[in-house]
């Protein structure tokens, strides 16, 4: 059987209709645009919930390209990314995986939390991430040359402590790395106000709480509250919850299961309101 003899299904990809809300923090937008122009792949580093996914969505919209996002996990196989044969009744068909679909469509492919993927899976992106810019679909014996619009973006949270989950130097050194962190208080308050639908005054208090919990990183907490958690708290407040109840549910309990730590987090919530 040659690839052409078999029916191939390539999912069609859409562009984002509306601009996602994204608040630039430093020069990441310009850097990303430059990388896109020079067809370089990009690595986004940063703690959880600091806006990496949102940034990629925004950039995809700004560059007018479709976006394919894959959340990586430890059972993710090469076939999950590249595609596979399916037997449908009498017929064998080939279904393009998200990566292949992105390459064919000239989309941005975002592999979220790349370290979660199995090592042998990560290697398929290597030829796409250097000057070859090609994807080998070995089951079909097909080599797809990526169009100029195709762009590979991966993300990685360096706060991860697991020894089993380190990004290999041979992978990492193919990428332009953009470092993310929680934004400055002013900016973060603006984001929380905008996303969470609360006034700036309330947003500032939430950001203050975020700062206090981040001070506990390494002293009982693996991570402080992310922007995402603060947005969640704001949304609960917007829905009519009392601020401290909202923060205890959306921030304190989300950060820790340890009863002692929870006590402290509750103390901090009460300190802010």
């Amino acid at each position: 059987m040659t690839p052409t003899a078999i029916k191939t299904i390539t999912p069609a990809l859409e562009r984002l209709a509306r601009a996602p809300y994204y608040q630039p923090v430093a020069d990441e937008v310009a850097l990303f645009e430059a990388a896109a122009q020079k067809r370089l792949p990009v690595l986004l580093k940063g703690p959880t919930g600091c806006g990496k996914t949102r940034f990629v969505e925004y950039m995809a919209w700004k560059l007018g390209r479709p976006l394919v996002t894959v959340a990586c996990h430890d059972d993710l196989t090469t076939a999950d990314l590249v595609g596979r044969y399916l037997i449908v009744g009498e017929e064998t068909v080939w279904l393009d995986g998200p990566l292949t679909a992105a390459v064919r469509n000239g989309a941005i492919c975002y592999l979220d939390e790349i370290v979660e993927a199995r090592k042998d899976t990560t290697v398929v992106i290597h030829p796409l991430a250097d000057t070859r810019r090609a994807l080998l679909v070995d089951k079909r014996g097909e080599l797809i040359q990526a169009p100029d619009e195709f762009m590979l973006v991966i993300s990685y949270n360096p706060g991860y402590q697991s020894v089993l989950k380190e990004i290999k130097p041979s992978t990492r050194q193919r990428f332009v790395a953009l470092e993310f962190d929680y934004p400055e208080p002013e900016l973060e308050a603006r984001i929380v106000a905008n996303e969470g639908g609360v006034d700036l005054e309330m947003a500032k208090k939430l950001v203050k709480l975020g700062e206090l919990t981040r001070n506990l990183k390494g002293a009982g907490l693996d991570e402080g509250a992310s922007t995402r958690l603060l947005v969640h708290a704001a949304q609960l407040i917007g829905a009519g919850m009392a601020p401290s109840a909202a923060c205890i549910a959306a921030v304190a309990r989300a950060l820790s299961d340890d009863p002692d730590m929870n006590e402290t987090l509750d103390d901090l919530v009460r300190a802010v309101f």
Partner: peptide
Amino acid sequence: EPRLTRFVQGLAG
């Protein structure tokens, strides 16, 4: 002490 220590750590940074 333990609870207050963590609390102060949170405040102080």
